[in-house]
């Protein structure tokens, strides 16, 4: 009588790097790789967002497919034969990193990004001298006391747009504008953030993989040379505002809160917060 959602999942059998494996029907190739312990790089994928498969760094080779396929969004099919470490895969992954790192400032990207670049032997410098090739270099946007948008670090992974839109916040303050290499994340008519629809939930910052979007606290500390992630600790607690019970991860350095995130795998928040949860902590140090 107590009807609860039950997903009856059948298993699908396929070949992954020469091993026959079984995964639940509906799994993506990436899901299967993670289950089987095959590490796979991702940039635009996140567990709390709909896959957009634009970065192409997770591509794998599927027998019978003319081109490589994005493992993050391609569902496993019965009998599929997948190779995750073929020469073609390695070349494309390396090139994706080289293309990105030649045009975008990657120094604040997640550490694993640098590890993968080293793994694949990416040499972005061979694309040419930075001063002579196209890059997304531009001044940092500091338009209020909460956010910093540093688009020379933007790899256009669309995560912030998704978090601002249908995947979480439904505010739609930002979208991709322009086209081609000129495509960029923008408010309408590129108005400043305080003049836009933005409600400062910070969910865009929460999903940014390269430090293009940052809390002003972090930005200021980096500018001052005091940001030190190695001395920081993270404590999970519950937001003091309203009764929803959002989990907060308080990042602290020198006994002060320096930024707030939320666990992407928590059933209440899925990693997303509102302005109060994200920024309302400052009374702890008032």
């Amino acid at each position: 009588m107590n009807e609860t959602p039950v997903s009856v999942s059948t298993m699908v059998e396929f070949t992954l790097d020469d091993e026959v494996v079984k995964v639940p029907d509906g799994s993506t190739i990436l899901d299967a790789c993670r289950r089987e312990g095959i590490e796979t790089p991702t940039l635009c994928w996140a567990e709390n967002l709909t896959p957009v498969n634009v970065c192409r760094v997770c591509v794998v080779e599927v027998e019978g497919s003319r081109v490589l396929v994005p493992s993050c969004s391609r569902a496993v099919e019965e009998g599929m034969v997948v190779a995750t470490d073929s020469e073609r895969v390695r070349t494309s992954r390396r090139m994706v990193y080289e293309l990105l790192a030649s045009s975008v400032e990657m120094d604040r990207a997640d550490p694993e990004v640098h590890a993968w670049m080293e793994h694949y032997g990416a040499r972005p410098e061979r694309m040419g001298d930075r001063s002579e090739i196209a890059t997304v270099a531009q001044p940092v946007k500091v338009q209020d006391d909460l956010y910093v948008r540093d688009y020379e670090r933007c790899i256009l992974c669309y995560k912030c747009v998704e978090a601002c839109g249908d995947d979480a916040q439904h505010t739609y303050a930002i979208a991709t504008a322009g086209r081609g290499f000129g495509a960029h994340i923008s408010t309408e008519h590129d108005v400043s953030l305080p003049d836009s629809a933005c409600v400062y939930c910070g969910n865009c910052i929460g999903v940014c993989p390269t430090g293009a979007l940052a809390f002003k606290t972090e930005h200021d500390m980096r500018e001052a040379g005091t940001w030190d992630e190695s001395s920081q600790s993270v404590t999970t607690t519950v937001c003091p505002f309203c009764g929803v019970g959002c989990n907060l991860e308080l990042h602290t350095q020198d006994e002060r809160i320096v930024k707030v995130t939320s666990p992407a795998d928590h059933s209440v928040t899925h990693g997303h917060l509102c302005i109060k949860g994200r920024f309302g902590w400052q009374h702890a140090h008032a």
Partner: peptide, 12 residues
């Protein structure tokens, strides 16, 4: 401009 290989690759 959606995917990296084409967005940056065509420029390079």
């Amino acid at each position: 401009g959606q995917c990296v290989p084409c967005r940056v690759g065509t420029v390079r």
